[in-house]
Design a protein around this nucleic acid. Sequence first.
DNA 1: CATGAATGAGGTTTCATTCAT
DNA 2: GATGAATGAAACCTCATTCAT
Lengths: 223, 223, 223, 223
Amino acid sequence: MPTKEPKRKMRAIRSVADNGGRNPARTRLAIIEAATQEFAEFGIGGARIDAIALRAGLNKRLLYYYFGNKEDLFQAVLERAYEGIRTAERALHLGEIDPIEAIRKLVAFTWNYYIAHPEFLSLLNSENLHRASHLKKTSNIMEMNSPLVQALDSVLEHGRASRLFRSGVDPIQLYISIAALSYFYLSNQHTLSAIFGRDLRAPKAETERLSHMTELVLGYLLL
Amino acid sequence: MPTKEPKRKMRAIRSVADNGGRNPARTRLAIIEAATQEFAEFGIGGARIDAIALRAGLNKRLLYYYFGNKEDLFQAVLERAYEGIRTAERALHLGEIDPIEAIRKLVAFTWNYYIAHPEFLSLLNSENLHRASHLKKTSNIMEMNSPLVQALDSVLEHGRASRLFRSGVDPIQLYISIAALSYFYLSNQHTLSAIFGRDLRAPKAETERLSHMTELVLGYLLL
Amino acid sequence: MPTKEPKRKMRAIRSVADNGGRNPARTRLAIIEAATQEFAEFGIGGARIDAIALRAGLNKRLLYYYFGNKEDLFQAVLERAYEGIRTAERALHLGEIDPIEAIRKLVAFTWNYYIAHPEFLSLLNSENLHRASHLKKTSNIMEMNSPLVQALDSVLEHGRASRLFRSGVDPIQLYISIAALSYFYLSNQHTLSAIFGRDLRAPKAETERLSHMTELVLGYLLL
Amino acid sequence: MPTKEPKRKMRAIRSVADNGGRNPARTRLAIIEAATQEFAEFGIGGARIDAIALRAGLNKRLLYYYFGNKEDLFQAVLERAYEGIRTAERALHLGEIDPIEAIRKLVAFTWNYYIAHPEFLSLLNSENLHRASHLKKTSNIMEMNSPLVQALDSVLEHGRASRLFRSGVDPIQLYISIAALSYFYLSNQHTLSAIFGRDLRAPKAETERLSHMTELVLGYLLL
DNA sequence: CATGAATGAGGTTTCATTCAT
DNA sequence: GATGAATGAAACCTCATTCAT
């Protein structure tokens, strides 16, 4: 197998763009979605333009028409992925509820979002392998910043004011830690499962993990 | 850009094998080390056999002579990377010290090892992208299991016996969490730095991160 | 798999040279026999020096020591193959028996020799693909000539004298025809079997073929 | 000689595809024709994709675009070669003429077709070296079957009915024998010429061979 | 807007052969 | 006499990208 990447079948999973053509917005979206799957599954180097076109049910030339080249397509994919999580985060409204509940909700949300969007983890890994080169090229990079950091800051402030939480907690550090606990477990599930000889994705294992993470964070915060 | 991967200069960083040939063990090692760097930097798909040969100062053909193909070379690289961290872990001797100190030491060790061995994180990310396919092929996969899990179990037991630590803590969950806190921060440093607009690798930031992680874990464990 | 030839396992069938080394004649023979199998199975282009060494249970370097290069090794193999059939032919003694019986014997001998030595057919095919370039380099090419042609000439003469056989038969043409009838059937057995949807090598089919060939030749010769 | 195959010049004999591009059918044909020559001349292992592209006057990448890989290209070449002879055979209309004349015509046709299409013999030899692996993959393998076998059956029947031919002749056996007589002579002409020290392809030799074969077959058939 | 055909560069791998012991 | 290590050349094949319609 003189090939560069592991062999894989190329079959159109689902022709995302079953419009009779002539719908730019939809075509664009179809490409992004197909590319998201492909990049998530194989990384930037492993993703194949042909495979993306096939997944999208579109001619390869169109990818270039819409996105110029592979790198820029990845950038678009990445931006949409961030957009997705930021939108979901904005719907959380942590500030309006009890601090303890807010933390539970934040941990659970992070966990569930990553589980529902494994491609997001994979895309981030790819982007970090490339030293965030695509992210750095996005124009309004600040909008990538999570609205949750500010919300978390306010939750911590409320908790501290109510003498529930310890003081001196950096919301960014905590935000990163909460993300880390879910992210690492899921992103590295294959090596961890192999090494520990357990299926980390069994329902029971997932429940235990969420409990553990919640207890860990609250155990730390609560006075 | 007609090439698949971002352009990069190919220059022999350092001829790892400045033996006059005819030293199999040394040649083998030179290949593994060069490959480790290359795979860590560019992933499996992005790594170039030519580049590895150049880095190692060896004829490309030799890589095939010793390892058969790219995949098997990656497997060898991965196995050696695990071997490295397991060896370091075995030198920790957590069981012989005060539980609190042991936890501090474990968190700091994990952090420092990842900082000293960024290639390890990258290799693991690659392997997880490939669903641990190489790891699953290693013969004695159980030896990949960290000796720290058992040590941590005993630390937790001591802590609980001394009424210092809470009970009911699963050592595997905690081990994963401790790894997660350092791993995610470092592995995702580029996207995080870009988004937060701060340099997460500034000395001050590193110190703060280690403190935060230690407090988080101990804050959770201590009664 | 970017390989040139169809994949195949390389395993030493039988270490022909299980001498403790130091037996030139035996080593030489072991190489020739291993090479014969390899060349017969894969052709000159498809044969692999490594595979031959492995089959012979010898170091690859020895093949070069004894034969110089692949081409010359093939020449040696070919010469030995011709030697084999010529030796067998010399044992026939056609002149001493009844002409009809002699023809039967010749047809059957040809058929049986080809069946017992399929590698001979394959080597000849290879050599013809190369326009007999190796054969032309052999020193005493005349010794390659079949002793049977002269014997056949005398058989035909006897048959004609006894008013059994027709006259005017060129022994070389007939010799070629007799060879052709067996050779083509066996050498092309795979395509013929595929196309006719029958197994040409089934015992019944073989018997029928020999009968047919014998009848064909005798039917032509007999007055 | 560090190369695998005998050296040879690579020069575009004749740019088969002097279309200004954009003519798929023509391009496809140009590839097949170039590949036919190359495979016939050097065998499957010896044929070079580069050389085929050069012969066809096309970009090497196109061969893969149209045929996937070398093996599949060979299969296409082989199928076209069979198609060619089957088409020619269908134009013979043996059933409509006198049985004796029909046999003469069949022998001469076989002889002349092989002479006009030496590549056909070579391709068949290659395919048999590979145990008909490509032929077995062709979908309608039955259409490869010669229409002549049935025609020959009817000729034999007519001949027998007219008390001209012997009975009990298997048309497949006879068909194979007729093919064999021409095939072996031509396919093995180089070794035979070398060994007999005569030029088997001299015009006189060719005439004699055709006579001999015709007499042989008719001598057998005629009562 | 959309597409099948075409391409240059470069990737992995293989091979016959030689070197150093 | 015998061997494992090493090599340069070239083979097959892949890929992102562009051309012509």
